[in-house]
Simulated assay, not measured.
Amino acid sequence: MLGLKQSDLASKAMITRSVLLGLEQPGRKHPDQLALSKLRDAFRAEGLMFVDANENMGEGVRWAKPSGRVWVDSLRYARVMLGYTLDELSEKSGVGRYVIARLESTERKRINEQSARRLRDVLFDQGVVMLDEEAEVGAGVRLRAGFGRSA
């Protein structure tokens, strides 16, 4: 969501890139709690907040403050949360790869509402909820209950 390279994020968190890469490995057994804490602090300093799982919804991430973003601005984050490429999401949704890339672009001129709604529905079916901006917090994404680590 921040658009940072791994090396830049590692630097902001004051950890090495190799530690960051290790934290990103799905097969890791015992993540370094100090490194995770530093990483969380770095994300917070950049304006992101983590949303904990509860009985109704899974974990997620959102902007800590309202910024005027609309839910379509979180499409890329939802896709990445699921680990989908543009081609995979295109195949699952029936929305063209080029249309998805345009919707995910921060420099888009207009929103193809029909395609955006279709993507939102498919992402929801796959386990991701788009979080609208609210009065006190910004937009984001989170897993539905029963999906991901919150299951």
Rank of each mutant, 00 (worst) to 15 (best):
E136G: 00
D52C: 06
A116D: 06
V19D: 08
A116K: 09
E24W: 02
T85K: 08
A45T: 08
G138V: 06
L75N: 13
A13Q: 05
G96I: 01
D132I: 01
A101V: 03
R118E: 03
A135S: 15
G3M: 02
D125S: 08
F124K: 13
S105D: 15
E59Q: 09
R79P: 07
L89R: 10
R108Q: 14
L4D: 01
P31F: 05
A45Q: 14
V95F: 01
A101C: 04
L103D: 03
L75E: 11
V128Y: 01
P31L: 00
L143M: 11
A145I: 08
L39C: 03
R76A: 12
E113A: 09
M1K: 04
R17Q: 15
F147C: 02
L34E: 13
I15L: 06
E55V: 05
G68K: 04
L75W: 10
I111Y: 12
V95Q: 05
F50I: 06
L20C: 09
G83N: 05
S7Y: 11
E104L: 12
L36I: 12
D73R: 11
N112H: 03
A53E: 13
F124T: 12
L4P: 00
M57P: 00
E136N: 05
L123Q: 10
W71C: 14
L23Y: 00
R142L: 11
E46F: 01
V128I: 15
F43W: 13
G140F: 01
L4Y: 15
M57H: 02
M81T: 04
Q25F: 09
D32N: 03
E107Y: 06
G58V: 13
K5M: 07
Q33F: 02
M14P: 02
L131R: 10
S37Y: 15
F43Y: 15
K12D: 12
S67D: 03
A78Q: 04
L119A: 13
L34T: 09
V141A: 02
I15V: 12
Q114I: 01
G127T: 10
N56M: 02
V137M: 10
P66E: 00
R144I: 14
D52T: 14
K109C: 11
E88Q: 10
E107A: 13
F50K: 09
R79H: 04
A151M: 07
L21G: 12
R97Y: 09
G138Y: 06
R108K: 14
A151I: 07
W71M: 15
D41V: 01
L2Y: 13
L143D: 00
Q126C: 04
A35L: 10
K5F: 00
L9K: 07
V137F: 01
A10H: 08
R62C: 11
D73S: 15
M57C: 02
K38W: 00
D41A: 15
R28Q: 12
I15N: 11
E133R: 11
V72N: 10
G60P: 04
V70T: 13
A151Y: 10
G138I: 08
W71Y: 07
P26Y: 01
E24M: 14
G148A: 10
D8Y: 03
K29I: 07
E107M: 07
Y98I: 11
S93L: 05
E133A: 12
V128K: 09
L119Y: 14
V141Y: 06
M57G: 00
P26G: 06
E91F: 13
S74I: 11
I111F: 14
W63F: 05
R142M: 09
R79M: 05
R144K: 13
A116C: 04
E113Q: 13
V51W: 09
A35Y: 08
L119T: 10
